Simulated assay, not measured.
Amino acid sequence: MSGKSGTQGGHGRLGSVLSGLAVAVGCLLFLGGFVGGALLYQPYSVPTDSMTPTLDVGSKILAERVDGDEVRRGDVVVFKDPLWGDSPMVKRVAAVGGDTVACCDPDGRLTVGGKPVVEPYLRPGVGGRAVASDKEFSVTVPEGSLFLLGDDRHTSLDSRTHLEEAGQGAVPRSTVVGRVDAVVWPTKGLLEPPTGYADLPGGISRPGPFEALFTAIVAGCVLIFAGAAYGPVARRLTRRPAGGGPARKREKVGA
């Protein structure tokens, strides 16, 4: 009987150690993911409907803190240029320094360096046809600058609006404060990669660490709750009936 109790006690101590370890690892994952997210990402609210249907007005987004030199074609960026306004704005990078960006080809597509770009995220216009711009243009982007467009090309005030200014509507890379990685409200998750730009020189940006950080936070929560729940669950499963249980009652009747 003492051997059985010792075995049960050993199992209990092992369970307690494992549950404590699960809670400790869970705390590390949760705090690591949370702190990493706070350091690497900045939350923003989309101020206008110029990026619909990709980003609705008022959407809560997370922008990875990146240097403007890391930005590539197709990225959705947050930038702040005094010539465009006092508040941070959100647009898509259509072309980078040295590119000749023009619109439109016979199929209504944007071209970069003479190559047409497929943009499935564009909002369709009259007749259901998605046209890259309702205003024709051809611009060579100055070095160190970005040509920015909204995904709703019918309402967006973007680089096309500033074509007559110095730099032909492009903004310096230094104005970029973040690259949008995910939409957290309404919950859409990671942005779809801009595959239409993938065949151009330099390719497209790789996804940021949002998914890994989110996974760490969720896994941490699961481990914390599982470890904390072990004690009460184990006690309930090993609890014996008071007074010795049915076996003792049967002995008394038989006597």
Rank of each mutant, 00 (worst) to 15 (best):
T54A: 13
S59A: 15
L31N: 01
P43Y: 11
T48P: 02
L62Q: 02
G58A: 08
G37Y: 10
L39I: 13
Q42W: 10
V57R: 13
A38D: 09
L62D: 05
L28Y: 01
A63L: 08
E64R: 05
A38S: 14
T48N: 08
M51D: 06
Q42G: 03
T54E: 15
L62S: 01
P53K: 06
V57Y: 03
G36Y: 06
L62W: 11
E64D: 04
L29T: 01
P47C: 10
G33S: 04
T52F: 14
I61Y: 05
L31T: 08
F30T: 05
V57D: 07
C27P: 01
E64P: 00
F30Y: 08
V57E: 15
D49Y: 12
C27S: 12
L55H: 01
M51C: 11
P43W: 12
F34M: 04
F34W: 15
L62T: 05
G37D: 10
S45V: 15
T52I: 14
V46G: 00
F30K: 00
K60D: 07
P47N: 09
P47M: 09
G33M: 05
D49E: 15
F34P: 00
S59G: 06
G37R: 12
L31H: 03
P47T: 11
S59E: 06
L62K: 03
L40Y: 06
V46P: 05
K60L: 14
L55P: 01
R65K: 15
F30D: 00
D49P: 08
R65T: 10
S59N: 09
T48K: 02
A63E: 05
A38Q: 11
S50K: 00
L40W: 11
S59I: 09
L28N: 03
C27Y: 01
Y41R: 04
E64C: 04
L29P: 00
M51Q: 11
T54W: 13
L28S: 07
M51Y: 07
D56R: 07
G26F: 02
P47Q: 09
P47F: 15
V46L: 13
